[in-house]
Amino acid sequence: MSRLASLGRIVRLHPVASAAFGLAACFVLLFAVRLVLITVHFADPANRRSEPQPWMTPRYVAMSWQLPPDAVAAALKVPPDAPRRPTIEGIARLRGVPVAQVIAELEAYLATQGRAE
């Protein structure tokens, strides 16, 4: 009872500091729980495969899906005049096709790789 009473007294004497303390404690809890959830999700290798995005490079896709970089580059039909670090968007531009088409082709290739495992 005395502990509860002293807590009430603290809140009465320092309403602003108490509110800040309470709010910060809620956020600490929220972030900590989220961090644990993300870590658990990340621990599963199947969840670590990124869906293809326009900013990804062939090497990035290869690493994320644990595939040989050359095979991914071939699946993306990277033109020979491409820069050293082409992105999927850049590859689409060079090939003169929409990004969505390159991503669809890549997804089809990745699906066959998933089945092969």
Binding site: A24, A32, R48, S50
Partner: peptide, 26 residues
């Protein structure tokens, strides 16, 4: 392998340290 998730993780870590800082100051 998953940059989106790494970014989320970093954002959470940042938020956590700020919340801990405010907690300590209050």
């Amino acid at each position: 392998d998953d940059l989106t998730m790494a970014a989320q993780m970093a954002q959470d870590l940042g938020g956590l340290t700020i919340a801990l800082g405010i907690l300590a100051v209050a």
